[in-house]
Design a binder for these strands. Structure first.
Lengths: 121, 121
DNA sequence: CCGAAAGTACGATTCCTGTCAAACTTCGAT
DNA sequence: ATCGAAGTTTGACAGGAATCGTACTTTCGG
């Protein structure tokens, strides 16, 4: 099931009706992300919990599957921060927003970081 | 025979303290430090700069040798945070406060972390 | 078509953290 | 005895970040 991510053009033209449309802001190139941004994202325990679950689970997960001790709107905020920090890739499936850890890219840009942080409280 | 040092308080009253009671608060056992605390310490760019300089320099450094873009009182704050997070060990030499990276202990408690963060902006 | 589910957007609030200046302490040297 | 260097302490302050509730949007199922 290939997921096609289409970019939005400048005039806002709609590119496709497939799942994974432009409801999601563009993902940053990981090479533009600084260590500072990554640390600011990962210093929050809720966000680190999300990343850890994706890291150990090894599969993409809906926002709703994380059992987070916060409200939905706050959860949205945290997922946004993770996406803007280049740590996760998001796409829609139905009304569900899926979250994928950008593991290989992170490992290349920040070697050893994910591993050093994984599995800890 | 306890050696007694004199110490003045604001009102001029003479207080006493035992020799061996140091000017520097006790350092935490690194095993009591959580990843959360370490990340909170290292998320600040000034503090990361300090740690990086100690990491790459490989020797203890006076507070004053770091060329930090902040006031002295703010610098004191940052060194305190690093010490309380178990990342540095401090001791006096004359009026100078020396700072040592607790490298081996950190590496044991948080394998790969220092290396993953070192040398980056 | 309608309603429920999943999530977003927005504004308000609260709390925390980095920052500084000013006054103070401690130590070494003069 | 005093002075300067190095750093600390304290109090105040500004900006940012996490949080929430409410209203809104999109999609799917019946």
């Amino acid at each position: 099931m290939p997921i096609v991510l289409r970019c939005l053009s400048y005039d806002g033209a709609v590119a496709t009706r497939q799942a994974g449309r432009e409801r999601i802001p563009p993902h940053p190139d990981i090479r533009t992300i600084t260590l500072q941004q990554v640390l600011e994202a990962l210093v929050d325990p809720v966000r680190r919990r999300i990343v850890n679950e994706l890291y150990t689970g090894g599969q993409d997960l809906r926002c709703g599957t994380f059992d987070l001790p916060i409200s939905k709107s706050t959860a949205t905020h945290h997922f946004n921060v993770l996406r803007e920090a280049g740590l996760i890739r998001q796409y829609y499936v139905g009304t569900s927003r899926m979250n994928a850890l950008r593991r290989d890219e992170i490992d290349e840009a920040f070697p050893g970081l994910l591993r050093a942080l994984s599995g800890r409280e």
